[in-house]
Design a protein around this nucleic acid. Structure first.
Lengths: 246, 246
DNA sequence: GTCAATAGTTTGTCTAGACATAATTACCTA
DNA sequence: TAGGTAATTATGTCTAGACAAACTATTGAC
């Protein structure tokens, strides 16, 4: 129930929007514990005046953090700090990015890279006519020198130029973003099955070992399908971590 | 590249906020296909005047739909309809709700309902002291008269009163919501393993059959842990569908 | 013909203030 | 004392307008 007078420096000459400067600084203080859970913020009028901002601008900062689950507002009551534990609702990240961040030293072996007509089901997911040629990519992902996942990707040609060299050192999504593609939304399906003999051999498992399967279709900001992936992960080494909101 | 003059009736006497009336109607027209993908909206000034709203209010409507991935804005260019395919980023729903919606006639068999001290790991997830008594719940979920999942749940006492009768006919989350608990955020981990003999027997699978595992911790709007779940699903009958954004 | 400067269009940010509505608190009456 | 009513406080919604920045297309110069 503490209520701290809040002081945040604002740089009006910065290209960073004012509301975002405030939001960022608030987020930092909350996640760092500087603003403890349960702390009540001063009311918007006072806060706006103290920071030298208009109320709409200040409200926009707070709204941003409310959306992300760091603050709770109640009309007639006030605004309170809730959770430092929250991460993003869910990130559109690739396995490579995740592993890099976790310091797992990912490595990728490109087993196949071709331009050819994919299976009809994949063509349908890609929303191209059956028989259309697309990038077909088969990769083996290692973490700490152990095989982790066998990945099949399909991409329309023309978005990005792929070659083995680039793919060995960068994640596919990094390459897409670098090519100016804005990944916007993906739909995934996560399931499980037992490893076939061939999969077991590649992944250094035994036949029948449990595998996690993931099918993913990724769309960009204008609604184009930019990638279809069909991957299997060793369940003994990997699990999906998610955070849901609402 | 079509550009339609947009006409939306607005009820100023309604308690529904104006920006939301507009957002809802726009969403309906987009998902129904009435506003086709690629359609460009008129610019905000014109649109605001046509609808008799101020620009900030109109902008708020549009912002709502941009956040949900139905519209894209580009400065200097305009606002365009993108995807009718998007659903919510990801819903905090329970298996029971999902199945009901899908018309799968879910049924629940309560195998155990007790108040006792949970394993220490669960107590830690629940953020209660080891040895604290909590609800311990073991259930078998059927869909279309076939066993689908074996579910273990742990809840702090005092939030909701549980009894077998209620649990047979309603999902756990429905009961929580009815008790005034606002589910806000959950962190999940999805993995896979092979079925033990006991699990296989209960789930009508064979020993070694692939199972999807899910561990979930749910928090309410003020940051309390309200449920910890540890579930296994028959991979032959179930997969997780997700939509990621950003 | 090509490239750069420029003008026009459209969204992005910000301000100042008005009124509405929900939650709480204080008070006053029965 | 108990009850409801009124005042208070805070967020929610909305308006009207200003200026900034990004993108497009056109125009002009070489």
């Amino acid at each position: 129930m503490t209520e701290t007078p809040l002081s945040i420096p604002i740089d009006r000459s910065s290209p960073v929007p004012l509301y975002f400067q405030v939001a960022q600084e608030l987020e930092r203080r909350i996640t760092s514990g500087e603003l403890a859970v349960g702390t009540r913020l001063e009311n918007e009028l006072v806060l706006a005046e103290r920071l030298g901002l208009s109320r709409p601008t200040l409200r926009r900062s707070i709204e941003y953090l409310v959306d992300r689950g760091l603050l709770v507002r109640k009309r007639g009551v006030g605004t309170q700090v809730v959770m430092p534990r929250v991460r993003r609702p869910l990130e559109l990240s690739s396995l490579y990015d995740d592993l890099s961040r976790a310091g797992e030293h990912p490595r990728t072996e490109v087993l196949r890279l071709a331009v050819e007509a994919p299976p009809d089901a994949v063509a349908a997911s890609l929303e191209v006519d059956p028989g259309t040629e697309v990038y077909v990519l088969e990769r083996l992902r290692y973490a700490r020198d152990e095989p982790l996942a066998l990945m099949h990707n399909y991409l329309p040609v023309g978005l990005v130029d792929l070659d083995e060299g680039k793919l060995a050192h960068q994640g596919l999504y990094q390459l897409l973003r670098a090519a100016g593609v804005t990944l916007k939304i993906a739909s995934q399906s996560i399931g499980a099955r037992n490893a076939t003999a061939a999969e077991a051999r590649v992944l250094d498992e035994t036949r029948g070992a449990p595998l996690l399967t993931m099918e993913r279709t990724v769309y960009d900001d204008v609604g184009r399908v930019v990638e279809v992936g069909s991957h299997v992960y060793r369940a003994s080494r990997y699990s999906f971590e998610l955070t849901l909101t609402d």
